[in-house]
Design a protein around this nucleic acid. Sequence first.
DNA 1: GAGCACTGC
Length: 648
Amino acid sequence: MSLTFWKPGTAAPGSTLDRASQLEESIGVQIPPTHGRGQLPILKYRDNLLYCVEKFGVVIVIGQTGCGKTTQLPQFLLQAGWADDGHTIACTQPRRIAATSVASRVSDELGTKLGEEVGYSIRFEDVSSKEKTRILYMTDGMLFRETLVDPLLSRYSVVMIDEAHERSVYTDLLLGILRKIRKKRPSLRLIVSSATLDATKFLDYFSQDSEGDATIVSLEGRMYPVEVTYLQEPTPDYVRKAAETAWNINLQSLQQGPGDILVFLTGREEIDRCVQELSEMIPSLPARATRIVLLPLHAGLSTEEQLHVFQPAERGTRKVVISTNIAEASVTIEGIKFVVDCGCVKIRVFNPTTLLASLATVPTSVASATQRAGRAGRTSPGICYRLYTSSVFKVLPATTSPEITRTDMTTPILQLKSLGIDDLMKFDWVSAPPAETVLRALEGLYAAGMIDDSGRLTPVGEQVAECPVEVGIARMLFSSKEFKCGEEILTIAAMTAVQDIFVIPEGAAGALAELERRKFTAEEGDHFTLLNAYNAFTRYGRSSSWCKSHALSFRAMSRAVSIRSQLKKYMQRFNLPLESCEGDSKRLTKCLVSGYWRNGARWTADGTYRSVRGNMILHVHPTSVLFTRKPRSGWVIFHEVEETKKAH
DNA sequence: GAGCACTGC
């Protein structure tokens, strides 16, 4: 079995592209069926798209990465007058980097200055103008936040939800809200753009209302053909198999020609092992064969390390990029001709009964496998080696479960309530979160005093809904007035929102880094340790070289600075004083407990802890400063519980 | 003595 993508101009007879050119002549006549599943019209030109946007309230656009929908569609709309009369065209992206880079490209294409006709809006950065900006690229989270201020999104004429197939929590929430908005403001046009054929799910969703007028348009991708191969027999160890496959691709280079290799594995541990296996094989590489360069890629690497992956291979060498799922959608590496796909992915799952989050390795979906294969066909025809049998492929789920079904919903539900959506069971979810998750979230909001016993927002809840932090942190910020420690609690709030603050490399350098990290250690625990690290960072001039010599991530620390200054504005708005506790750790501890009292645990003689809620046996994570010490009081509060591989 | 998919406000 093989999957094929076609590049324009190279259409094979009878291919989809061929049919598309026949349709060109019937522009304006070819009206796509409203509910016609299974008959996706292949339209290629702007007139067809504009016709659909004019005629239908909701247009679902299917197009592979690279078909230009993200950059071209908003420009079509602009030229057709959709941004006249002071209206704006919004286009959401699930990631910041996509919002900024696309905005900059479109701005160039139009020959305008970024931030004027074309702008972007992401957290901490608003490069747009209320008066001038006609096309606004933004993260989905930012548009969701805007609904809290302007519930009808009245400044927009068209909203395009891009990459909807990724089904981020904010994408799902936005689709639900936009469906409600369209009932009150039918003139608002909605474009849902998706890379998979699962788009019929969106069509069904928007066709449910009586006034439902949705249609699907399919666009052609700009892709080279990718041949897909499967294993004859399943492998017991896909990491080794991945190393062998990459090795063999390189050995066959005389037939295969140049081109880099991209290997998909699930996590850092597997990546390190694969790099290890391949580097052990390198001494046996025949002299005539191409030399290979091994490049691991995962989010835990520093920015510099990640940049290595993008540098073109030196003459006479071949890059082998061994990556997590980060290379599936977030990062695009040019020059990849061979993809090796282990067939698995690590996803975060949330158990609403135990409130435990954990990482599970699960088989990829068909959509995900297709996306991975497509990474081989960006610059030339490619080959994808799937490290599983074709019978396994046939039973893969069509898509990965939407994030909203496997994550904590406390904050989103608070925000929905702030939007006046109180009956969560009646809300039209694209995919509903499990009832248990909703109940737990409501319970948590009630316990934190954000909602009353009839489920309505309290005055505090009303304010916290605006705050871009989790509920416990917000609770803490509000209590800081009573405990007179706003200055410190603000820093702790910012630091807990950032991940991977300490950088501990492998091997000997790691031991040194560990010693550096201990310099910040506070006896009181991780929150105080984070506070120490932040204060030291600002005291020593916020420099990246200082971070490097103190085992800190400059990227993470800079982010904490931004978050702190953003939260500071909220504190000022809510009249919360910024007082210092002047070294009184007791007051600060009490304030922390006021936000996280539900996450209490008691030390036991065997070194483990028992949670106050549920009396669960908990272990301290090795990255905590309490991993090596006993809390003086015998009590701790924890920020989060994560299920790991540790044997219980 | 032991561990880190990826985003986003």
